[in-house]
Design a protein around this nucleic acid. Structure first.
Lengths: 232, 232
DNA sequence: TGTACATCAGTGAACGCGCGTTCACTGATGTAC
DNA sequence: TGTACATCAGTGAACGCGCGTTCACTGATGTAC
């Protein structure tokens, strides 16, 4: 898991940190970034249930009153974490997208793999993103990060369908929503341990890679009844 | 929203309640059922974040120590609620399933509609079901209720494919998982308010009804590139 | 280069809160005789 | 039918906990002159 990036890892802050370390550390130097990194560990280890501001401060090695200088309240810190989560989700999709060029049927599948991979690697962060009840859902940066992530399936469908704005076309919009739904649902059910019960031993990449292109670009012909023999 | 059913709404309990009401109410008469009903209101109004045992006791009109006689701890109460949630999810799928006979391609779609309808009508209860971190995930009744719900898509695919155990066939199992994923993901994203951002104005029944049969029973031919003109 | 001073970013004590759980208790109920 | 008694299902006080937040403070930093 990569370290949390600060929004502005300024050179000045790094310089201050070096000074602080050299001279003793009454002033931390870059506590904001340290708190975000601590919050990520807190989230990964305790889940969102056990997430506390005091715990983050402890992990960062400062008094529990210190975070108030950097985050208005615990909600603001969680919203920042969720924003970072959305950004990382986008990064994961972008990184996987290279495997298959836009416009090819496989493109949507590799984006989906990037989505599921992020969820698998960052379970608590992934779930936090969608816990809007705990966040400042109207925060501008959070909203932007969410929309940026949503644009991945939108652009993929646009490239396949050869149009600019798939969301303007009800049938194409349904494909976008369906693609998002299937990877999201798969991720959530996986994290909730539901596939243990389901005794589903299949490889997630096979499922996403095989079925997702069909959901997005599959034939519009009326589906024929499916017989077992036809599957093999 | 239907009232929470007790596991054993015995006649004796109802009789005791009547007596208690008539004579004063030191003894409640059927506090277990009343606590479950209170827990449902607590959940619906406060969400799982704001759910407390004391709050349930207040809603039921008893002291906060009273629930201990009926539920070992708050986890046990939540697990009971989640079990009831799974049972209601099954009921919703069963109720919708009548609209289209098993084996027909539309059968899986109406089951999916039942799934999404339950989530839309019971948002907090729906989300609780999958918050395994808050529950006794090994509780026998909880596990049974979950497996019962899972059997709905399994049976639907079995009927369409004409085999007994689709989960034994990797390709069919993938269809089951995909069907579950798409309705689950759609439900979660809907409840998280993500479709506001997506500006998706489409009707959920259209999406599920049109695409879900395709996911489950759609052609296995290599999907052709999708052009906008082809969609209309 | 030194110095005075404003500002910044920490500290630690304290506040009030509501929680889950425990405990001794007591009133109500049910039953054996 | 009456009575003694065990059991059940409540009460209310109390405990300890950790939380978020506030506050006056202070040490460190940066800058104007």
């Amino acid at each position: 898991m990569a370290a949390v990036r600060t929004s502005k890892p300024s050179g000045a802050a790094r310089k201050a940190r070096r000074r602080a370390t050299a001279r003793g550390n009454y002033h931390h130097g870059d506590l904001r970034a340290a708190l975000l990194a601590a919050a990520e560990r807190e989230l990964a280890e305790n889940g969102v249930e056990g997430f506390t501001l005091r715990g983050c401060a402890r992990r960062a090695g400062v008094s529990h009153a210190a975070p108030a200088h950097h985050f208005r309240d615990v909600r603001a810190l969680l919203t920042e974490m969720a924003t970072i989560g959305f950004e990382r989700l986008s990064e994961s999709m972008r990184a996987h997208a290279c495997a298959d060029p836009p416009g090819s049927p496989g493109h949507i599948a590799v984006i989906g793999k990037g989505y599921v991979a992020f969820a698998a690697d960052n379970p608590h962060l992934f779930r936090l993103i969608f816990r809007t009840g705990l966040l400042d859902a109207d925060d501008a940066r959070y909203k932007t990060a969410g929309t940026d992530a949503f644009m991945f399936p939108v652009r993929a469908v646009a490239a396949i369908a050869g149009c600019d704005d798939p969301m303007a076309d009800p049938a194409l919009a349904a494909r976008v929503i369906a693609a998002w739904s299937i990877v999201h649902g798969f991720s959530e059910l996986m994290l909730a341990g539901q596939f243990d019960r389901a005794a589903y031993g299949g490889d997630r990449n096979t499922l996403i890679g095989d079925l997702l292109p069909r959901v997005v670009a599959g034939s519009l012909a009326k589906p024929a009844p499916l017989r077992r023999a036809a599957m093999q």
